[in-house]
Design a protein around this nucleic acid. Structure first.
Length: 624
RNA sequence: GCUGCUGUAGCUCAGUGGUAGAGCACUUCCUUGGUAAGGAAGAGGUCGCGGGUUCAAGUCCCGCCAGCAGCUCCA
């Protein structure tokens, strides 16, 4: 599971140059160029943002003479612009630039478009010393219009090689913007290229919308799993252990165990059998599988055992294949469904590790299905049903994508590709799962269905995947004896529902904001006596709860009730049971539900029945 | 890996060359309190690690480690 990367969210793969504006600083007076084409109000938000990106670039150009400009498009939540500057920008510069933007906006009644010839464009950009722009100019296909968009006059005049469209001008428009952050970004997105400085910002038509967006960003920060991980004592990472290695604390260990228990239950129900495979194998295994060749950069360096190189596994599939190959297989055995919570290690580049979401050692909820092509549709349908079960249990909305054969560098017969892709389609249809087509998005070894989920904050993640594989069976020469006695090649299906426990649970922390559903909450019930003399009653309640394997924190130590309430609240404990004389005498408890301040006095047995229900149904909320 | 920034008590942070600070959390004592901070006292820091400059380094310089915002890449 993963966040759809910022890159995806910003949709940069879309050809961008024209829309995104290749900007450049101009010193010509724009007053004599032709007026912009009529843009009818209201402008799309993307136009505004793109125009504000221009505004920002012009301010940067004014404040930092000699600035060179890269790309500056609008993106999902705002815009950015890349600059090549002689000195690094700081947050203080952002405020300065904002101020300058407001000034320029006031003096810029209109944004004007000017169409020029390629020669003229080249001449201008050369004159302005805009190297990146010149390169960008060459990206514009022959025959397409080449235009500049400019605003400001006199010393402030500024123009941008850009296709548009833009708003007509800044002066008379009511809009609101904020510059948010500075980061490095490679020119044209390639690490071969020089790094530029990128400024991110956002803009809206109303102050309210801007504020709302800024609040959303705050909420994202508050729910950050790294922050909650420390606050709720969930996990840690350590310089002493190295970057990208997660230590699960007891609180999160509980969450994981609950999820794993559900996972094994569902897999048992789905006809999967557990397998366990070693973390280390001889290097030659990964040579056969092809991982060494295609994935070698991600693998840890070999270690020497008895003068043979060994490797830590980056994937579980070769191990499962060895089990398959251990003896001959008959069609009668298929499909074989083998599941493993397999821990793998991958050498992620140092700059990418991120809390629990991007780590160097993680546990995949892996399984492989060995089946015939005729069984494929049913098998896929089974996986999709299981995906639905998990995603809805955690309250995620999702979209499934059918990724078909890539244009080149694939392996496998045309016919097999077609039949497998058709099987994926049929499977989805049989369970009424709509598929969005991702043409050519498959792996080189087979078509697949990928899932994207939406979390409570509306962010998209990718986690579940079902992939057909024609490659590994080939490489390992897998076969089974068919009804006619002939040796046939099975298809292998790789699938992960959660992706990795680390990424999934890290995502869950943010999705729930630390308020885990009752069934997997680290502590489910806190017992708080009003006075010390009520501790005995609490103790009897504790025994009953613990006897039914509920996770109870009996806060019986001396101290103030209010302090304990505050503590339990901070720990996001679903239920606090507060008990004094009245409760003890009546066999009741005062129940305080997470997130509320009201209490409800109920018979303890009624409470017990309620939480049994919550646990059994894996309800997300605490009602009912 | 790359660009920029950061690293001081468990947490949030102050401390710009001259003997380490605050709030919260923690411990102890007092407080017996009916639903989110009662009072007092106390403990807690190799200032990320290693070098260098200096009479003197948390503070300046270099290297490493880790983290943060991104880029690139990914479960």
């Amino acid at each position: 599971m993963r966040f759809a990367s910022r890159r995806e969210r910003r949709d940069l793969r879309r050809p961008r140059w024209g829309r995104g504006g290749l900007a450049s600083r101009g010193h010509t007076d724009m007053s004599d160029v032709q007026a912009a084409p009529q843009v009818v109000e209201p402008y799309p938000l993307s136009n505004l943002r793109h125009s504000v990106a221009h505004l920002m670039a012009s301010a940067v150009g004014k404040l930092f003479p000699g600035a060179k400009f890269g790309f500056g498009p609008d993106i999902e939540h705002g815009f950015y612009y890349d600059f090549d500057l002689s000195e690094p920008l700081t947050d203080k510069d952002l405020r300065r630039i904002e101020k300058e933007m407001r000034k320029i906006a006031k003096r810029s009644p209109e944004i004007v478009r000017e169409e020029v010839t390629r020669e003229e464009a080249r001449k201008r950009l050369t004159e302005w010393g805009q190297d990146y722009k010149l390169e960008a100019l060459e990206l514009i296909p022959e025959g397409e219009a080449i235009s500049f968009y400019g605003h400001g006059s006199g010393a402030e005049a500024w123009a941008d090689l850009c296709e548009g469209p833009h708003v007509a001008g800044f002066q008379s428009l009511d809009f609101h913007f904020k510059l948010l952050s500075i980061a490095g970004a490679y020119w044209r997105g390639s690490e071969e290229n020089p790094m530029m400085q990128r400024i991110y910002g956002t803009a809206f038509w109303s102050k309210e919308q801007l504020d709302e967006h800024l609040e959303w960003l705050e909420e994202v920060k508050l729910r950050d799993h790294r922050r909650l991980g420390a606050e709720l004592d969930l996990f840690s990472t350590h310089a002493d252990a190295g970057a990208g290695f997660v230590f699960w604390h007891p609180n999160l260990g509980v969450v994981r165990r609950e999820i794993e228990a559900m996972w094994w239950d569902e897999h048992t129900r789905g006809g999967y059998k557990p397998v366990y495979t070693p973390h280390v194998s001889r290097e030659s295994l990964f040579a056969v599988s092809g991982h060494l060749e295609n994935y070698g950069e991600m693998m840890y360096a070999p270690m020497d055992l008895d003068e043979h190189p060994y490797r830590v596994k980056p994937m579980n599939c070769p191990g499962h294949v060895l089990i398959y190959k251990d003896r001959g297989r008959s069609y009668r055995e298929l499909p074989l469904r083998w599941a493993e919570l397999g821990t793998v290690y991958r050498n992620e580049r140092s700059g990418v590790v991120h809390g629990m979401l991007r780590v160097r050692g993680f546990t995949q909820d892996d399984a492989h299905i060995f089946c015939t092509i005729d069984q494929l549709a049913d098998e896929i349908a089974g996986v999709c049903r299981m995906v639905d079960k998990f995603l809805t249990t955690f309250g995620f909305e999702y979209t499934a994508y059918l990724a078909t054969r890539p244009a080149d560098k694939t392996i496998g017969e045309d016919e097999v590709w077609e039949r497998a892709t058709e099987a994926l389609r049929q499977a989805a249809e049989s369970i009424d799962l709509p598929l969005v087509l991702d043409e050519g998005g498959g792996a080189f070894y087979g078509p697949k269905i990928d899932y994207k989920i939406k979390d409570a904050l509306g962010r998209e993640w990718q986690n579940s995947t079902v992939q057909c594989d024609f490659n590994l069976p080939e490489r390992f020469d897998l076969h089974y004896t068919d009804t006619d006695g002939m040796q046939k090649r099975p298809i292998m299906v790789h699938r992960a529902i959660l992706g990795s426990l680390e990424r999934f649970v890290g995502g869950l922390i943010e999705h729930f904001g630390g308020k885990f559903p009752f069934w997997c909450a680290p502590t489910q019930v806190a017992l708080i006596p009003i006075r010390e003399e009520h501790a005995d009653y609490c103790r009897t309640l504790e025994e009953k709860l613990a006897g039914e394997l509920f996770r109870v924190d009996a806060m019986l130590e001396p101290g103030h009730m209010n302090k304990k309430i505050k503590h339990a609240q901070k720990e996001q404990v679903p239920f606090m049971l507060i008990a004094g004389e009245r409760e003890r005498d009546e066999g009741t408890v005062a129940v305080r539900r997470r997130g509320t301040r009201e209490q409800e006095v109920v018979k303890f047995d009624d409470f017990l029945a309620r939480i049994r229900e919550l646990r059994a149904t894996k309800a997300i909320g605490l009602d009912g």
